[in-house]
Nucleic acid binder design. Sequence first.
DNA 1: GCCCATTATGTCGTATTACGATATTTCTCA
DNA 2: TGAGAAATATCGTAATACGACATAATGGGC
Lengths: 137, 137
Amino acid sequence: MSKDPAALDDADYAALADFRATIRIFLAFSEGEAAKAGLSPRQHQALLAIRGVPRGEATVGYLAQRLILRPHTVSELAKRLSALGLLAGEAPQGDRRKLVLHLTPKAENLLRALSAAHQQEIRRIKPLLSDLLDRFG
Amino acid sequence: MSKDPAALDDADYAALADFRATIRIFLAFSEGEAAKAGLSPRQHQALLAIRGVPRGEATVGYLAQRLILRPHTVSELAKRLSALGLLAGEAPQGDRRKLVLHLTPKAENLLRALSAAHQQEIRRIKPLLSDLLDRFG
DNA sequence: GCCCATTATGTCGTATTACGATATTTCTCA
DNA sequence: TGAGAAATATCGTAATACGACATAATGGGC
């Protein structure tokens, strides 16, 4: 019998494990930085997603797509962030069912420091990640 | 006053948000595949980490380092996986405090299918990730 | 050869958080 | 205008990682 061309060998598994571990390293770094700022990882990602898009476009539904969460989960996330004084929301002109979220100045400041640190970390792991990707043909 | 050279502009935030979103896409894919196999993401990563290392090297402590979790958390993770019939463990010759974990045939089979799917998905997002990394200078 | 600090793993209770089911408000358009 | 859809919100629940603590085994100094 001939070898299955799609069969994975030890090197394939090692590459997958290394890829996953590298992502985990980045996420653990991010977790730590966010925690220093008093944020959960999701809260941090939510703030970043809002900052990364033009003002007025960050609705609950948009965030749900962007974070790959259920809309009602984002609703709770936004409530917690609002309670922390990091988010404000208002209904846009056209559709009063929607809620457009925007960062408070406090959130802008938090995110500025967090993002600088993350940018550095991504630059640090960039060669690692590139090499890793090359192991996937 | 001159502009802070380290200041982040909208494009920097967008790159960070896109990078994070791409990781989230991969993790959501992985979550879904793992769930189809009846595994949590951590359980999947644990199996992969064990498979990715030579037999006999995957102790609880090693996994804790690799997954960036507390050892006692890995202990519980291993207990759940054992209850599912996916892991077996035994004390190695030298040090009977340690517990070496290895996959059962059932876990090998699950992981084979999962890993093939993940390899494909990584190949799919590889160009996206590469372009993204280039946005970080 | 024995003691004790250290290492490795395990147990228990708790807090966080994402989800399903369901509800409410607003919009759309026939 | 009324029915159904869309967008967001509420509530109870389940999963899981952690801290604090416990147990077991090791090994170096004397």
